[in-house]
């Protein structure tokens, strides 16, 4: 707060006040220019991607900047439909749905216990959750494989799904939320004789809708986009998810040539589900992004 006053001190009177006002208008133009230029930088690649996925291979290399395919072809998409792409899509979908359901349920159970139930070792448990969040994910790649291999879960759906069923960040978000719920609600239910699970399930959880939506979205997005875990937990082509599958496309798995229309179409289709979720629930994304941030 002191800095506010120190800043004011060296100010050379209020002389440039008038021109300052005019500069505000000019500043606004400059501001818009910056915003529009960056918006182009951010949107243009996606437009190019969309256009190129409808181009022929020759067209894509000859006119990479063109936003209109000439001729328009859906060859890339039909090629994908014939390949393993639908299978990858299905795998991604199954994994993402199961993981999301698991995370939402288990994380909120644990979050509730850590926020409200009084039991021995609670403080230590919470400290452990925080510690776990600090472990960099990439460091765990090889270790995770070792454990999955040891348990005989390598190269199976269970190996792909079970390790993702709970995450420390989700527990943290839910704990934060449950702490903001007034205790009086639960007291009333407790006096009526409801047990902890009863209170959690039919009293507290229905009130947690905003946090649950945020967690659902973050979990879905996270597991849909997950790459490293599926690299180290499976090897059979039938278990490819979209991320590992499309990554294998890049190394030219489907024949020779650049195949840019094919690759970009594959990347485009895998973006669609997350994009839909994003545009519908944008509010919650924004909140999740900043909420997850505070944890650090």
């Amino acid at each position: 707060m002191t800095t506010t006053t120190t800043a004011a001190r060296p100010a050379p009177a209020a002389a440039p006040k008038r021109p300052g006002r005019r500069r505000g208008g000019l500043g606004r133009v400059a501001g818009y220019t910056v915003l529009v230029v960056f918006a182009l930088v951010y949107i243009y690649p996606f437009l190019i991607q969309l256009a190129t996925s409808f181009k022929t291979e020759a067209d894509s290399t000859a006119h990479p900047l063109a936003l209109w395919p000439d001729p328009v072809t859906t060859a890339a998409f039909s090629r994908l439909a014939e390949a393993d792409y639908p299978r990858w899509f299905l795998n991604s979908f199954v994994v993402a749905v199961v993981v999301t359901a698991g995370r939402v349920f288990f994380d909120s159970l644990a979050g509730y216990a850590l926020a409200r139930l009084r039991f021995r070792g609670r403080g230590a448990l919470f400290a452990a959750v925080i510690a776990v969040m600090a472990v960099p994910g990439v460091v765990l790649l090889i270790p995770k494989f070792l454990v999955l291999n040891q348990f005989g879960m390598y190269d199976s759906y269970s190996g792909m799904i079970v390790p993702l069923l709970a995450d420390a960040a989700g527990v943290f978000i839910m704990k934060q939320f449950f702490e903001s719920v007034p205790v009086s609600v639960e007291e009333a239910a407790r006096i009526d004789g409801a047990g902890p699970f009863r209170i959690f399930w039919s009293v507290v959880l229905p009130m947690a809708r905003p946090a649950l939506i945020t967690l659902t979205i973050l979990s879905f997005q996270g597991s849909w986009n997950e790459l490293p875990h599926f690299i180290v937990s499976r090897q059979s082509p039938e278990l490819n998810t979209l991320t590992t599958g499309v990554a294998s496309l890049v190394s030219g798995q489907l024949g020779s040539g650049n195949q840019y229309p094919l690759k970009l179409a594959a990347a485009l289709l895998m973006t669609v589900p997350v994009a839909l979720v994003f545009f519908v629930f944008q509010r919650h994304f924004v909140r999740g992004g900043t909420e997850g941030a505070v944890k650090g």
Partner: peptide, 16 residues
Amino acid sequence: AYYFPSVTSSVAVSVV
């Protein structure tokens, strides 16, 4: 517009 790429898959964006 600026936030959208953060939401998409790193694989998809890498391909682009």
